[in-house]
């Protein structure tokens, strides 16, 4: 196979596997950094790194999870360089102490309520909830992406969901029986 054909084949494979995830990847980046230019830059660096190491990607595995893992690493490297890393090992314990009970989900919840409530909970819990509930990543994939044990993923997810319900109930007009659907815009 000549070099051009090989290059085209590899580019086509990357384009097919990775590029369909740009929208989701950007949304994830945008949620993390809250700045459009920075999010675009983060996604671009993520995809450049993914392209450089695409030979390490195993076809048939979850490409979006692989890309999200790279994005998490790129972001955490950037934070480290900027000295923004916050190491707070007590965050889970503190969170546990502030969730005395799990309230029911309010009657009417809009998309905006949902995202504002998510913003109110600690970033550690936000991250795990996003990776699990929005990105559909397995506990193992989340543990690898965030470089934390699977047990920590599970406990953050559990507490995070409880915190989210608590935050939503503060925003809701009135409680409803658990199990009623969520009305969205």
């Amino acid at each position: 196979m000549n070099a051009d054909a090989d290059s085209d084949r590899r580019w086509h494979a990357f384009e097919t596997e990775a590029m369909p995830h740009v929208d989701r990847l950007f949304r994830h980046a945008m949620w993390l950094v809250r700045n459009r230019a920075e999010a675009e830059d983060l996604v671009q660096e993520t995809l450049v790194q993914a392209l450089q190491s695409f030979h390490r990607f195993t076809p048939g595995t979850n490409c979006r999870a692989w890309l999200v893992s790279i994005l998490q690493h790129v972001r955490s490297n950037r934070q480290r360089k900027l000295g923004r890393t916050v190491i707070d090992s007590a965050v889970d314990e503190r969170a546990a102490n502030v969730v005395p009970f799990v309230p029911p989900i309010p009657d009417h919840v809009t998309d905006e309520d949902m995202l504002l409530a998510l913003q109110e909970i600690p970033p550690h819990h936000q991250q795990v909830i996003l990776l699990c509930d929005v990105e559909d990543m397995t506990y193992k994939e989340i543990a690898a992406a965030l470089e934390i044990p699977i047990g920590t993923v599970m406990s953050r997810l559990h507490r995070g969901r409880d915190l989210l319900r608590t935050a939503l109930s503060r925003r809701g007009a009135g409680p409803a029986a658990i199990g009623q659907g969520i009305e969205t815009r």
């Binding site: 989900i105 919840v109 998309d111 905006e112 949902m114 995202l115 998510l118 909830i129 509930d133 929005v134 969901r161 989210l164 319900r165 939503l168 199990g179 009623q180 659907g181 969520i182 969205t184």
Partner: peptide, 9 residues
């Protein structure tokens, strides 16, 4: 419902 609502939002 909470999970689906978050995903949709």
């Amino acid at each position: 419902a909470l999970r689906d609502g978050l995903r949709t939002a």
